[in-house]
Each structure stands twice: as structure tokens, then as C-alpha cells.
Write a protein that binds this DNA or RNA. Structure first.
Lengths: 181, 181
DNA sequence: GTCTATATACAGATAGAC
DNA sequence: GTCTATCTGTATATAGAC
């Protein structure tokens, strides 16, 4: 659609960053406005309430997932390898939106919970044709969840226990060997 | 050591439950005191500050992990199978303490982050002799993380996408086939 | 050991100037 | 479209009675 005003996007960026780095409790309107370089009143012009701000982030996640589903199905290295590799990315816009939305979900935001669950279902649907059975699909999804979980724990600061480089290649090979259709 | 007074434990139970069910933001001294059936002043007699309350929960997690490490190494069905099965348990005291502590970690509590990371390392150490190489160990740990992540997302209310019964048996068999020493 | 009452800070939100 | 000022609720924490 018509691209949203830049101020709105800066506010969403700031809100997302605080959620990831400092957690839900720190992601106040005040802190978000400060980080985005606007006043609280300015922020509330674009998002009429805290709930509206949260809804804005959830919407952004939805848009990014649309693009990702397309990328998964057309990835040259194959959907499973692409999916696992991208699950371990920490500064991809999609991953940031997902981790931030997970924080909202854990804070009791029902729409955020529903969206995170729905995203997971869309990924499952995209990968199902490329795994040999339901158990194999479970395995791929759980490894991906594990990679996200570890990224989410550190918030981007400390290097977590997520495999990188050759270790990630080996992991992908092992999972593909056990799951590929 | 000498078992802690019962009031302290009730307060910790209440704090843990609110963290899991409603998130960090809802886990206030007021809400915790109410759920534990004491006044805020009464709570603050046992835990002198919010930080002390959080430290109490983190300590509890440490004690429960000590017991779990012992159970993992002596499990009749084997360490990996036991470990994965127990990672999907939602109302085990250990799993509740871990999920609650993860919430604190995501809220920026450094001690909680350090403890969660340390717990993961202790599990890795216990499982390393029973997996064929580093990649296999990564796989087992990530599947376990994925199971926790899904439990943590729902907070115990909605039945999540975690495999149960025969599906869990099949998953364990698949992981063991790919990882067993 | 547990309570009530209170101090202080900060959250989300509104009103209205510019 | 963005600001300041302000209202109202609620958080953590302290003081002191019982």
C-alpha cells in the first residue's frame, strides 16, 4: 500500500529496539518517544494509545512474514536450509520484529500471541512439502524455535550459544539428513 | 540447608505463577502479595526488595537444576530421551522456575540471564558424553530450547504445538537416531 | 511476623498551544 | 504534525502500629 510516514516507522523501530534490548517493562511510551527523537505527545499523534503502538508492531511483523514465506519457497539452497539459517539471524528486520512481538505475547498481549502462533503455522505449511513426515517437520520447527529462543534471550548483546559458520552448516546437514523428503 | 519458612515459599510460588501466566510487567509486589495471601508489607518482610524477590526465584531454579542433573545422568530410558521428554513438561517445578526466570532475564535482570545460560551449560555437560559429536549435541539442545520456547509462549493456558504422546516418542526416536553416541 | 498508611516516582493518556 | 503541561492510576519502598 502507500508507504507509511517516516515518523511512524522511526517510532516502531525504537519501540522494537527497546523491547528486544531491555524487555517489555522498559518499553514505555516515554522511553520509546525519547529513543525515536519525538515527544510523548508527538508519538501519541501517530499511535493513539499503547495498544495501537503494539498493534503497529504486530502489523509490521505480518508484512515481513509475507515476504519471508516467498523467500523460503524459492530459496536456491532449499527451503529447510534457508529457513534454519535465517532463524539464527539476529539483525534481520523480520527476526527483530518476531522477537519483539514475542515479548509482547509473553506480556499478555493476545493479538501478539495469536500472530506468533499464526506465523509458526505459515512456516510449517511452507516447509511441509519439503519434509518427509510430521515428525521430521516437528524437528525442523523445534530447531528453528530453539535458535529464536537463544537469540531472544540475549537481546542481541552477548553472543549466545547459537551455532555459526561451519557449526551451522553441520547442523543444517544433520537436520536435512534426518528430515529431507 | 535448613528448609525455608513456608510463607517465603508461598510468595515465590505466587511470583512464579504470575510471571508465567501474565508476564513480567504484571508480576508486581502488590499482585504477588495478593496471590500469596499476604500484604505487601508482609511480603517485604521476607524479601526486602523486588530485587531480593527475583534473587529468591533464581536461587530456587539453581536448587532444582542440581536435582535434575542427577536425574538426567541416571535416567533408565537414557539421558537424551529423558532430557527431551522433561523439556516438554509444563507443570514440573523445574520447568516453571526456568520459564519464570527466563522472563526475568528478558526483562533485563542480569543475574537471571547468567543463570539461564549457566543452566544450559550444565545440561550440555551432562549430555555431551551421550552424543556423538558437537553438532549432535547442538541439535539436542536446540530441540530442547524449542520445546521450552513453545511452553513459555503460551504460559500454560493454550495447548501449544509441542508434540505429545506418540508424536513425542517419534521425535525422540528421530533425534536419538541422528545424535546417539 | 504481619499489618496499614504514606512517600516518591513514573506509567498511560488528555488538552490545548504553536 | 509536534510540542508542553497536567490529570490519574499504580509501582516500589519506608515507617511504624499490632
Amino acid at each position: 500500500m502507500s508507504r507509511p510516514p517516516h515518523a511512524r516507522e522511526s517510532v516502531l523501530d525504537a519501540f522494537e529496539a527497546i523491547l528486544i534490548d531491555d524487555g517489555e517493562r522498559s518499553a514505555t511510551l516515554d522511553a520509546t518517544a525519547r529513543a525515536a527523537g519525538v515527544s510523548k505527545g508527538g508519538l501519541l499523534y501517530h499511535f493513539g494509545s499503547k495498544e495501537a503502538l503494539e498493534a503497529g508492531l504486530i502489523e509490521r511483523l505480518g508484512r515481513l512474514v509475507d515476504v519471508d514465506i516467498e523467500a523460503i519457497t524459492t530459496a536456491p539452497e532449499g527451503p529447510v536450509a534457508y529457513f534454519l539459517r535465517s532463524s539464527a539471524m539476529q539483525n534481520d528486520p523480520l527476526d527483530r520484529a518476531l522477537i519483539a512481538t514475542s515479548r509482547l505475547a509473553q506480556g499478555g498481549n493476545a493479538a501478539a500471541s495469536a500472530t506468533v502462533r499464526e506465523v509458526r503455522l505459515r512456516w510449517e505449511d511452507a516447509l511441509r512439502p519439503h519434509t518427509k513426515d510430521a515428525t521430521a517437520l516437528d524437528l525442523v520447527m523445534l530447531v528453528s524455535d530453539g535458535l529464536y529462543f537463544n537469540n531472544a534471550l540475549e537481546g542481541g548483546s552477548v553472543p549466545g550459544p547459537v551455532p555459526e559458520g561451519a557449526a551451522m552448516d553441520a547442523l543444517i546437514a544433520l537436520v536435512e539428513g534426518a528430515t529431507k523428503r
